Simulated scan of single mutants.
Amino acid sequence: MKYLVTGAAGFIGFHLTKRLCTQGHDVVGIDNLNDYYDVNLKLARLAELDKFTVKNTTNDKGVFRFIKLDLTEREGIATLFADEKFDRVIHLAAQAGVRYSIENPMAYADSNLIGHLTILEGCRNNNVEHLIYASSSSVYGLNNKTPFSTSDSVDHPVSLYAATKKSNELMAHSYSHLYDIPTTGLRFFTVYGSWGRPDMAPYIFTKKILDGDTIDINNNGDMWRDFTHVDDIVEGIVRIADVLPVRDPLWKVESGSAAASSAPYAIYNIGHGSPINLMGFVKAIEDELGVEAEKNFREMQAGDVYQTYAEVNDLFAATGYKSQVTVQQGVAEFINWYREFYQK
């Protein structure tokens, strides 16, 4: 099939594009290559994808093409959809980061709201078979009931980033209802692994420990995260791409799941389903590095949540897949990549 992957130079987008091309699909990847974090890391990911730019003689790999394009460029996005005629769209591009949204709110309005709308419009006008898009576990906000279920209320976000992701789900539903576009939102839970973002905890902790710097431990270490390795995330995305939501005329708002609809619309959690304490994750990094970190314990930071914990039974029912990578395996994989990439 022919896929559009937005955010192809990003962390998850890179891994997903690699997987799709290996499976023989043709992929057009777009990214605006902004400087939210080191652009050289994004360029290095794209360099890794160069091997898929031409089909080999056995024709067992797909073609990858990269186009530098911002989601807010309405005419550019519209032309891209009209010219390429994608079968499926996997929309991962967004302005990431919870704390950054407190300091730079307008960046989130542009990328996460207007950008999501341009993708919806492209799908509407070009008969895209299935739109899969990235939501986030952050939408659960003030919810304290665990594990987080897609049937839970997500009306009380604690960051603008989370609010934009909830907005994406609402926008997708309206387009599914109005234009019969099958849309699937995936609420990602604390993704980590090789080629990960420098603003995320695994990267920050590893870098600071190796550099001999002190690491900050929020809420004095009393935090829980459903760390999910990127390989498990990619497997879930690839499988759910084949599960197209359909209209359900019997579904009712009063009695139906909030993750379904009378429209061809679905929402799934995609996480490991077994959160661990932050200090346990730090210990896994320390054990793999063979170094004990200097720690600065501090209060909870603005926009943070105490715990994330994914209920993943719906995803398993739809795809037959549950996360396989343990934290120990995932941390080892990340640190091996980090040492090799940065020659540490």
Rank of each mutant, 00 (worst) to 15 (best):
A293S: 11
M279P: 04
A260R: 15
D248H: 08
E311N: 07
A260M: 11
V312N: 14
G271K: 03
E311K: 11
G256I: 03
G256M: 09
V291P: 00
E311R: 03
N313G: 09
D314H: 06
E294D: 14
F281V: 05
V282L: 15
W251C: 10
A284W: 01
A317F: 07
M279Q: 11
M279A: 02
E286M: 04
E254W: 02
A259H: 06
Y309G: 01
A266H: 15
I285S: 06
Q307A: 13
G290E: 10
I270C: 13
Q301K: 13
M279L: 15
G271S: 09
K295I: 11
M279C: 07
L250M: 12
E292W: 07
A317D: 14
M300W: 02
H272N: 14
V253E: 14
I285D: 03
N277I: 06
Q301W: 08
T308F: 04
A293I: 11
F297L: 14
A259D: 10
D314Q: 12
P264D: 04
E294Y: 09
T308D: 02
R298Q: 15
E286F: 02
F281R: 05
E288V: 02
A302H: 08
Y265L: 08
M300F: 07
E254T: 12
E311V: 01
D314W: 00
K283A: 13
Y309S: 15
N269H: 12
T308N: 02
V305I: 14
N277L: 06
E254I: 09
I276W: 00
N296G: 08
E299H: 11
Q307G: 08
P275D: 03
L315M: 14
D248E: 01
E311P: 00
M300K: 15
E288K: 09
V291F: 07
I285H: 05
S255D: 13
V291K: 15
D248T: 04
E286K: 07
K283Y: 01
K252H: 12
T308R: 02
Y268Q: 00
E286I: 03
P275Q: 07
